[in-house]
Design a binder for these strands. Sequence first.
DNA 1: CTTGACTTTACAGTAACTGCAAAGTTTAGG
DNA 2: CCTAAACTTTGCAGTTACTGTAAAGTCAAG
Lengths: 133, 133
Amino acid sequence: MKVSELARRAGITPAAVRFYEAEGVLPAAPRKANGYREYTDDDLCRVRLVVAMRGLGLELSECGRLSALCRDGQCDVMEEQLLDRLGERRQAIAAARAELDHLDRELATLQGSMRSGKMLPLACCGPEGGATC
Amino acid sequence: MKVSELARRAGITPAAVRFYEAEGVLPAAPRKANGYREYTDDDLCRVRLVVAMRGLGLELSECGRLSALCRDGQCDVMEEQLLDRLGERRQAIAAARAELDHLDRELATLQGSMRSGKMLPLACCGPEGGATC
DNA sequence: CTTGACTTTACAGTAACTGCAAAGTTTAGG
DNA sequence: CCTAAACTTTGCAGTTACTGTAAAGTCAAG
């Protein structure tokens, strides 16, 4: 199949597929006589793995590394490392959530102050006392 | 004061201050004879406003626009628009949180399947039936 | 007078793509 | 056979908000 079909079936754009190849995340596809990339179902499978890992929030380079392990017949090693990453991701997600919650509380408080007419409680004029904004 | 002191008192780096100026987020600072930027307490106040708005998650361009309004004596208009942005931000935060929650559930499920020995339930070999990864 | 701590500028790099331009290829229809 | 649409190729610029580096000038202390 050609790049557009591969991309469509993997759920990304042809440009992204070429980008992944350029970045070494996917192996360089063999070319037909006209220079077009030609893909097999196995290739599709590999792309899908990368897309799935990206969807889990892993960095592209990490997806490439893990996918390469799998291609080298070390799927078990890959699985092990993927499991590690999943744990790390969940920690990062928990942290991100806490941060969002904190920010939302700040925003709510600020909204409240502003709506009740108080002038900018933004830390604009700090503890040093300040000039007019 | 010089750029480092301004930056320190505003809670950012000197490089960020110069960047903000280059981007037009802050007005160009007047220079001393030696070419160094010279700032007043009012300038510090302006930078702090931008830093505060950035901390609320607003885009830099938006911070620049709002801060400029305030500089032009339209603090009231700025406040109004800021209030709008805060509402939008809170919506975006709620959406981001929902996404994080969803992702975390996915990760947890995947962790579970992998730990109990099931091979990659990643959508790697899709509904079309697939090759080996 | 030297050393260290500043300052200036400009430019490269980051993450993960998207969009564009220019040129060649294929495919369907007339 | 011709043409027009819909592909494909490459390379490069743009996105966001900076950070890091390099080269060069300035300033304060000892």
